[in-house]
Amino acid sequence: MDILINGKKVKTRKGEHVLEVARREGFEIPSLCHHAALPPDGACRLCLVEVEGPEGKNKVTTACTLEVAQGLSVRLDTPEVAANRKVVLEMLLARVSDSPTLLKLADKYGLLEMRLVPQGEKCVLCGLCARVCTELVGAKALTMEGRGTETYFQPPFGEPAKDCVGCGSCAFVCPVTCIEYKKTDRTIEIWGRTFERLACTECGEPLDLTPEHRDLIRRRTDLLTPAEMQLCGGCERRTTMKTMQRVVEGQQTLETARR
């Protein structure tokens, strides 16, 4: 089904949302809480668009949660959208004043003056960390606690994250990089925990893998035998190379080389 974005006819599939369609088509819409691998959440409210309604009754709403429908026509750059997005940005910047991500957006969308009292927070409460941890990684180490202005994303009761596996995905998806993730030769530190890094059993090089994360990965498939996930990429490749060499030299058949 086709929809109109800024008057341009665009092909969509049923169940898609305007944000993903628009981005695919090269339109720019800002957002903090959207992630392609997660269902829309509508938390940050930056991705405002104006939906054209009958008799000029237009409505401003978020593109991430707006499902495509026959005859849908949206505009991304109306005065109404711009004005409201500016205020939402102003609110976010009052919360986290020093985030380069937000400052860039402020620049881009014409927010010149800050009228609100800075809150000195680090987190914009987009919720991606907890959603990624719970819905994707499956560690369920982070959650939204409290409510109202006293809302936090953190491990249960703000204590060191018992169920964290140290995969670092939360820190990676954080749009304002406020999650401290520290990697040393031997350890990974995050959410008040220090994880041991597994080391390659061949060369001793530290892996980007904690025992906890390894166990979690194992649970996703029956392909991985206990012997696997012990080597670094280089040692794995050398093993692969040697196997191939034996096949080439006729010491081993392709069939036995295959797992």
């Binding site: 409210r45 205020v87 609110m91 009052a94 009292v117 409460l125 409290g146 409510r147 109202g148 202005t149």
Partner: peptide, 20 residues
């Protein structure tokens, strides 16, 4: 401000700002 669930920006931050 206390009763907002805290999820979306305009409600949470708007109420915080208004309260201030």
């Amino acid at each position: 401000k206390e009763e907002s669930c805290g999820k979306c920006t305009p409600c949470r931050e708007g109420l915080r700002a208004m309260s201030g």
